[in-house]
Design a protein around this nucleic acid. Sequence first.
DNA 1: TTATATAAATTCATATAGGAATTGCGCACG
DNA 2: CGTGCGCAATTCCTATATGAATTTATATAA
Lengths: 242, 242
Amino acid sequence: MPPRQPSDSSKGKAGVSDVYASMRASILRGEIAPGTRINIDAVSRELGVSQTPVREVLQRLEGDNLVVYSPGRGYSTTPLLDLPALRALFEFRLLVEPWAARSAAVDRLANPAAALEKELSAFRAIMEVGGELRQDLVAHDTRFHDSILAAAGNPVVRHAFAQTHCHLHTFRLYPADIDGAITVAEHSAVRDAISACLPDQAEQAMAEHIRNSFYRFSQAFEGAEDLPPLEDSGPPRRHIVD
Amino acid sequence: MPPRQPSDSSKGKAGVSDVYASMRASILRGEIAPGTRINIDAVSRELGVSQTPVREVLQRLEGDNLVVYSPGRGYSTTPLLDLPALRALFEFRLLVEPWAARSAAVDRLANPAAALEKELSAFRAIMEVGGELRQDLVAHDTRFHDSILAAAGNPVVRHAFAQTHCHLHTFRLYPADIDGAITVAEHSAVRDAISACLPDQAEQAMAEHIRNSFYRFSQAFEGAEDLPPLEDSGPPRRHIVD
DNA sequence: TTATATAAATTCATATAGGAATTGCGCACG
DNA sequence: CGTGCGCAATTCCTATATGAATTTATATAA
């Protein structure tokens, strides 16, 4: 007897993608609480699928640094990013993304200016109508930066950047609404420099954007604990910032 | 009744780690041939385990870029690195590792000079006796570079570098024996600069080492097709190399 | 009252089985 | 002789069940 319709979903095939999207959304919304152990069969029963795809999804989520695995203890959600982790993440971005912006500005054939402008226009249109801005801002920011990384022409760098899932983690860290206007302005500056094929200016604009973004996100840490968080925890490796 | 001895291994528990190590070694030795589809139950029967851990191992190997997954078609081994892929990999290393060497040289507290010297001495001792040098050279190179990355103090950068599995792929690309003396000499130069806390010199030595390593590996491409492989495939993004 | 040991229950990890989709091959037709 | 179609076989993918390890709760003793 074939088990017809294992769940009430429209398609007969439940699909791993749905389970992945559902669990990732649950973690990002904070419904599971950071640091909590995840019960596999509870999730499988809740989603109406078996334990096998849930395990597979958890392994993929481990690659996204959203869950951690302890041998014999199962999977747990990772704690939220603390300030040093946020610093490390943005230092990596500062290492990679200005280089990518410079590379994208130099190469005329693969210049992503058109795609960037299209992305910016679309988000400006969304900003006009308002409503659920945070989701759209994250999506726009992800696509904008990925376009530049893609234009840089190095698949290894692009993959390494994508694997950090920086937008995913910063979004998880700061679920409050952010003013998208500042982001759009800084993105426009980056786009202008890339469109004009000015490598130095593009590199500088991107570095400035990342620094400002770090300051904005670090201010979200317990109100306004200390204003300049780059100075108190940083060893002398300053040459990247300068 | 517990299923006694599912395989003839020493421990009663087969374990996923053994399966992972076995399959990774098989792929690296080229026993499966790049681009071939992997039959899951054939592997499971050969290794004496079920299909479930084999699937789990394949998912982990997909994260290592040793296999690729096509929906409905299963897993296949990835093709070997071609010259553009090797270029992209070493451009990423050139972006990250000189920065790490500089950072490791600046910070006196976490200076990895002692560990690096210990690693070098151990490998020099192995070189004396000879035999199976390639395996040991790869292991030494992996540990040496990871020590510097770890000393740089940025877990995100270290993880991104580790996820590239550069040693794994270059080793897969070039199974022939390489002279370890040159590598040891260049490593020693890097160590000296880090030990002396000379950031500029450490950065330069590391960049030089990576460039030379790329030239060595690129020469392994079909004998000596064309000597300067940096010129024929590269768009103008030259600022990294210079 | 607290700490420890034991037992029960929950949960993880693997094995096994069955349904579904794809691939390859043979045959008929144009 | 080339091409399109249908069938069979293999293989993937998910579900279910069972064994092993860990965690927790309870009872007893200090």
